[in-house]
Design a protein around this nucleic acid. Structure first.
Lengths: 208, 208
DNA sequence: CCATGTGAATGCGTTCACAGCC
DNA sequence: GGCTGTGAACGCATTCACATGG
C-alpha cells in the first residue's frame, strides 16, 4: 500500500463514521455518494488504494471495509495522549469518556499552576508543566490536546515539540510554528464560522 | 476577483490570524513561509488573487493585506447565528464572548425541551425547537452551531436546511446528509485525534 | 537589489470509461 | 445486470522562472 493522497486520508477518516452509522451489512459506492456528496468514482478510487477484497459482488462488505480503512489509517493502534493546560476546557477533557472508546489513552495532564495540579481531582495523573518533557518521553506520549490560553500556546507547543510529540490538537486561536513532521489540527469554533462565512456566496443565487 | 480555489480560501482564513499576531507593520512572503510552512510561491499566488496593491516594495502592508483578505472572504459581513441544542456544550456557547468580536451575532438558542428553554438564563432569546423554522427566517439567521446529541443531529439538520440555513458547525460525531449549497464543518475532537493518528508514520523514520 | 506579481510548466488528484467479476 | 477496480485523460493547484516595480 503506497501512501495515500492527503484528500483521500481525510475522506477515509470520515468514511469510518459513515460505515459505523449505516446499519446495513453491505453498501455500494452509490449509496456512499448520496450520504457524503463525494462522487462514487472518487470513493471507489479511494477504496482501491487499500489492499484487500471487500466487494461482495453487489456492494462493499461494511465490516471488512471498515476494518481495512482503520488498519490503513493506523486507527487500530492505541495511542497515548496528554492534556496541556487544565483550565475549563482542558479539565473537561480529563473526564471525557469517548477517547478510550476510540483507542486513545489519556495518561497525563499538565498545568503551569502547581496549585491547580495539586487541587484538581482527575482520573489521570497530573503534573506541573516543568515535568512535561520527562513525562512525555517516559510514557511514550504521542499526542497532546493543547488547551492553554493563546498567549502561552506557542511556548507550550515548543516544549511539546522538544519532547518529541507527534501531533497536537490546538485549541488556541493562533497559528502554531512547529518543525516539520508534527501534525497540527486547529480546533476553534470561530474559525469554523469564518470558514462557513467565506463560502456563503455574496449576493448570488445558489444555482446560477 | 474570480472565485478563489478552495485550498486558497483555507489558507487565507489562517493568514488573517498570522497577520493579526505578527506584530510588525510589514511582512514578506518569506516570513509567512517560516510562520506557516506554506511555500512563498503559494502565498504570493494566493495573494495575487486578491485585488488591490499591498506591496510596499519590501513586503506586504499588514493592515492593508489583512483587510483585503477579510473583504475577499466576506468576513467583514456581520452574520447572524443560532445555537441548536442547549446541553452542556450549547449553553456554554450562549455566553461565549468571542463571537461578537469576530462579527458573528448570536441571536437565538433552540432546544427540544420546553422546560430547559424556560429555565435557562441566557443573554440571547431561547425558543422551543418547533419554532426553529419561523425564527430563522424572521431574523435572517445564516449559520447554526449544532450541539444536539448524535441521535437527533440529522433530524435537526434537516429542519435547519428546510429553514434555509447557509452553514452548520456540527459537533455531533456523524456525517450529516444535506442538500448542496449548505456548508458543513465538523468539530469533533476525537476525529482530530484520529486525523493526527493517521498521519503518524508507521515504524518509519521521519527523514527516510 | 530585493521582493512582489504572473503567465507557463509541472504534478497530483479527480473523473472517465471500460474491463473484470459476482 | 449491476457493481467494483483501474489505467488513462483531464483539470486544477502548486511550482517555477522571469519580468516588473519600489
Amino acid at each position: 500500500m503506497a501512501d495515500l493522497p492527503e484528500p483521500t486520508i481525510e475522506r477515509l477518516l470520515q468514511l469510518t463514521r459513515v460505515l459505523d452509522n449505516c446499519g446495513a451489512a453491505v453498501v455500494t459506492s452509490a449509496e456512499i455518494e448520496t450520504r457524503t456528496g463525494w462522487s462514487s468514482h472518487t470513493i471507489r478510487k479511494d477504496i482501491s488504494y487499500l489492499d484487500g477484497d471487500f466487494s461482495t459482488g453487489s456492494g462493499y462488505d461494511v465490516a471488512a471495509l471498515g476494518s481495512a480503512v482503520r488498519s490503513a489509517l493506523g486507527l487500530d493502534i492505541k495511542r497515548k495522549c496528554c492534556v496541556v493546560g487544565l483550565g475549563r476546557l482542558g479539565s473537561a477533557y480529563l473526564n471525557f469518556p469517548a477517547f478510550a472508546d476510540e483507542g486513545f489513552e489519556l495518561v497525563a495532564g499538565f498545568d503551569s499552576s502547581v496549585n491547580r495540579v495539586e487541587i484538581l481531582r482527575s482520573p489521570v495523573p497530573l503534573y506541573p508543566a516543568f515535568k512535561m518533557g520527562e513525562v512525555i518521553v517516559r510514557f511514550g506520549i504521542e499526542m497532546a490536546l493543547l488547551c492553554v490560553p493563546a498567549a502561552s500556546a506557542q511556548a507550550a507547543a515548543d516544549r511539546l515539540a522538544a519532547a518529541g510529540i507527534k501531533g497536537i490538537v490546538n485549541f488556541a486561536p493562533i497559528a502554531l510554528e512547529l518543525p516539520p513532521g508534527i501534525s497540527v489540527r486547529n480546533v476553534y469554533v470561530v474559525d469554523e464560522l469564518r470558514a462557513i462565512s467565506a463560502r456563503i456566496p455574496i449576493r448570488k443565487k445558489e444555482n446560477p
